[in-house]
Amino acid sequence: MTPMNRAAWVLGLAGLATLAGGTAFSADAALDARMAAMMKDSFRDQGIAKVDRLVQDLANDACSKAAGGDLPPALAKQVEADNLKTVKPPSDGRFLGDWRRGERIAQSGRGMTWSDKSTKAADNGGNCYNCHKISEAEISYGTIGPSLHQYGKLRGVTDPNSPAARPIIEYTWGKLYNARAYSACSSMPRFGHTGVLDEAQLKDLMALLLDPQSPVNR
């Protein structure tokens, strides 16, 4: 373990203890400490998947502890605000790329496992069809997330560059970049925030969802 990883672990432990609340000596706090030790002892680095992937930020720590339930409203607001701050708009101000490339990214479930070779975003897919219906032609889609078929059309986007479309364009960018900005415990990966996908890939997915020419909207 590198010194930096070790520091992160210690911080993680401190975070666990703090979040366990005012009751300094509860059974929950004891279990939380055992949990932290168990996770640390049970996993090892393998290829690109290092043990620092177990370090949780506030969002993952809070949502793990909620065990599928809702966060207290104030905490949910804080998580969403923290995550919204991470969203970077596209550097050139253009939100839409090429929907054809977007479809390929949506189809690909590759990337970031210990059997993958690199952590470069360009080598990763978006896994989108694993959880969402998107284009009509693809019948092998998952149902963990909502259907995105006709995503732009249903939201009245006829010209993605128009001022009228701006709010939905910005929201969709934010959702792809960091889904937890709008829903604290959303199951969706934070593609931009975590660097799983890069700006160009996010733009291509934007086009898949919002370009009127995309099969999603035709």
Partner: peptide, 14 residues
């Protein structure tokens, strides 16, 4: 502990 592990979010994809 298993329950906590089951709900433990982490990794590159949360």
């Amino acid at each position: 502990l298993g329950k906590r592990a089951f709900f433990y979010r982490g990794g590159s994809h949360d």
